[in-house]
Simulated assay, not measured.
Amino acid sequence: MNDEFEEIPLGAGELPAPADETSNSKGELPPAARRALTELLSRGALTSTGRAAAYEAIRLNRARIEAILNDLNLELILDATTGIAAIRAAESPDGDEGAHPLLRKRPLSLYDTLLALVLRRHYRDRENAGDAKIVIDVTGIQAALGPFLPLTKSDALERKQLNGALDRFREWAIVAPVRGVDDQFEISPIIRIVINLEWLDQVLAEYEQMAAKLTAEPESGDE
Rank of each mutant, 00 (worst) to 15 (best):
F5S: 03
E6R: 11
I8W: 05
A12M: 06
G13K: 02
L15I: 07
P18V: 08
T22L: 02
S23I: 14
N24G: 07
N24S: 08
E28L: 12
L29H: 00
P30D: 03
P30I: 00
A32F: 11
A32H: 10
R34E: 09
R35Q: 13
L37D: 01
L40M: 08
L40R: 06
L40C: 11
A45I: 01
R51D: 15
R51L: 14
Y55F: 14
E56H: 15
R59W: 07
N61M: 06
R64D: 04
I65A: 01
N70E: 02
D71Y: 04
L72K: 06
L74P: 05
L74G: 03
E75R: 00
E75S: 06
L76S: 04
L76F: 09
D79L: 06
A80D: 12
T81H: 08
T82P: 05
I84G: 04
I87G: 02
R88E: 14
A89M: 03
A89P: 11
E91M: 11
P93Y: 10
P93T: 04
P93G: 03
D94S: 12
G95T: 03
A99M: 15
A99S: 14
P101D: 00
R106G: 06
L114I: 08
A116K: 11
L119N: 04
R120S: 00
R120I: 01
H122S: 00
H122T: 07
R124V: 01
D125G: 00
E127D: 09
D131T: 00
V135Y: 02
V138R: 08
Q142K: 12
L145K: 05
P150A: 06
P150G: 02
P150K: 08
D155R: 09
A156P: 13
A156Y: 10
L157N: 13
R159F: 10
K160M: 11
G164K: 06
A165D: 15
A165N: 10
F169Q: 13
F169H: 11
A173I: 09
I174G: 04
V175F: 02
V175C: 01
V175T: 14
A176L: 04
P177E: 09
V181C: 06
V181S: 10
V181K: 15
D182Q: 14
D182V: 13
D182H: 13
Q184A: 11
F185T: 05
I187F: 00
I187T: 07
S188W: 10
S188E: 03
S188I: 01
R192T: 06
I193N: 09
I195W: 08
L197S: 13
L200K: 05
V203S: 02
L204K: 04
Q209C: 03
Q209Y: 09
M210S: 07
A212R: 10
T215L: 10
T215K: 12
E219I: 15
E219W: 13
E219K: 15
S220W: 08
G221C: 09
